[in-house]
Write a protein that binds this DNA or RNA. Structure first.
Lengths: 134, 134
DNA sequence: TGTTGACCTAGAGTTAACTATAGGGTTTAT
DNA sequence: ATAAACCCTATAGTTAACTCTAGGTCAACA
């Protein structure tokens, strides 16, 4: 079973422009073509694109992701590099989690703050009571 | 107690360029100046900047953040809007958390995959055993 | 057979968020 | 009193990641 570029775009919630851009940047050297040049995506290509999206979501720039893809093409000699890279990504993701927790705390606090203020019809309720303005 | 722009930059881990850029974009209408134009940051300004950083970390663009700041200046008539905005941000942050969990799962899986492969000296150990290549 | 709708490339354009430069003022330490 | 170390504005430049356009190929359907 293979997929066209627009099918893959739909599946991964990307545009065909974005997929072609990724290909141009060297992120998809594994995707095969029909004799006339049309891309044919295999199941494993979609798995690889999921990994790419995963790396991107940790804030990894496309040029770094390309390095990883190149290492994959280079075979077993790059295994350690690839392992180290994922360990680093794990650390980044964990830091993001910590950051996100703090963000959620502040947002929850703000939700409380504004709920009280909306109910009171004025923000003064906080100013007079010193529950923290910002 | 007040702070200079470079002190605030250090505190918030931003550059002075970034702070001046935020000011230019209307994110800091509350910051006062000395007679000759130098910005003087109060404690409450730093609190506000923390909120701005919090919103930014949920992916909110600066123009949207400016809207919120404007609402703050507009007073009690915008309380509901501000409340709704934080509820929406809360939903976004929760979605980000879900996304991040999935990301971490994939990364952990990959860490396992590469640990095994590095130990074996080859990636073939997975190809033959079908533990999932990507 | 001809037109619709996919696909393709090359390359230009866009956008957000900085980041830096030029040119100038003020305060502080020697 | 002069140089270092801040501060300022206005404006230009950068970068990443798309996003789009122009111009063209190809397969299927009416």
């Amino acid at each position: 079973m293979t997929y066209s570029i627009s099918e893959v775009a739909k599946k991964l919630n990307l545009t065909v422009y974005t997929l072609r851009y990724y290909d141009k940047e060297g992120l998809m050297p594994f995707v095969e073509r029909t004799p006339n040049g049309t891309r044919l995506f295999k199941e494993s290509d979609i798995d690889a694109l999921n990994v790419i999206e995963c790396l991107k979501s940790t804030g990894m720039p496309i040029k770094e992701i390309k390095k990883f893809i190149d290492w994959c093409s280079d075979g077993d000699s790059t295994l350690q590099k690839r392992y180290d890279m994922f360990l680093e990504r794990k650390a980044v993701a964990e830091a993001q989690l910590e950051e996100l927790k703090k963000t959620m705390e502040l947002i929850n606090h703000k939700c409380e703050y504004y709920k009280t203020a909306v109910d009171a019809g004025t923000e003064d309720i906080h100013k007079t009571n010193k529950i923290g303005n910002f």
